[in-house]
Amino acid sequence: MSPEAGKSPDYGIPALKAKALELRRLILETTHRAGMGHTGGSLSEADILIALYFRILRSIEAADPAKPTRDRFILSKGHASPGFYAALALRGYFPLEELSSFDSLGSRLQAHPDMLTCPGVDISTGSLGQGLSCGIGMALAAQANPALASFATFVLLGDGELQEGQVWEAALFAGARKLPRLVAIIDANSVQLASTTADAVGLEPLGAKWRSFGWACIEVDGHDMEGLCGALEKARADSSGGPVAVIARTVKGKGVSFMEGRYEWHGKAPNDAEFAAAMKELAL
């Protein structure tokens, strides 16, 4: 399959759901094989990534990952790289088999996304809180340069990540400038490394926070593919007038019953028995 230039492949909702299931299986295979990796947050972002890479992002081409007019995507929650890499592989940026090299010496698929090694990574991330600022730089570039004017920038953040102060420096700046064609997506899975976000430092009311920083805000079920695609399409359209935050309410570890909602699965890979049980739940 080689996606047409300027347009994401024409997938219907059932096909996108099937892709998301495939993505979840690839995430588990990747972290299981590596014996490490961030499984929980990769599973929570899975539907968002599929919506983006197979419906929303425009002008992205696996054969030309540096195309200047492409939509930009930043995984600000860079530790959820197994999900990101699996989405890039499904979209054809590199062979699916390469996922087995994840996090091993010499691999292009570093523990955290590295723009210098991995095709399709628009900027390196890994230290939480930095991606939205980088996205603002890209949106400013699009605004300043008529040759780039068409692209939109999407930044995926974790909700726990919003505890980083830099995120709010960035949110304040973009909101104050009414910066166009910038969309922040919050993978709001309510769970961080060592506890729930509520038990760590609560973030609610989250939508009100973004609105008070000058952003439009859409809240959506981050696992309802149809609703998610609708929200992201609306966000892209509405962002012509200023930045838009999409708060995607998700479940950490989504799709695997014994991982769902559990912080213990933040940075852990399944062992053989857990992997077998999980793959059974995610049977095609």
């Binding site: 628009d122 809180g129 930095q130 939205l132 890209m138 400013l140 699009a142 340069n145 102060g165």
Partner: peptide, 25 residues
């Protein structure tokens, strides 16, 4: 038009600069 006032926020300024640089600036 080539000058960006970032406010008192050095961390954000560096990230924004990186984003601009990734687009050819």
């Amino acid at each position: 038009h080539r000058f960006y006032e970032m406010g008192i926020a050095e961390a954000n300024a560096i990230g924004v600069a990186a984003g601009l640089a990734s687009c050819g600036y």
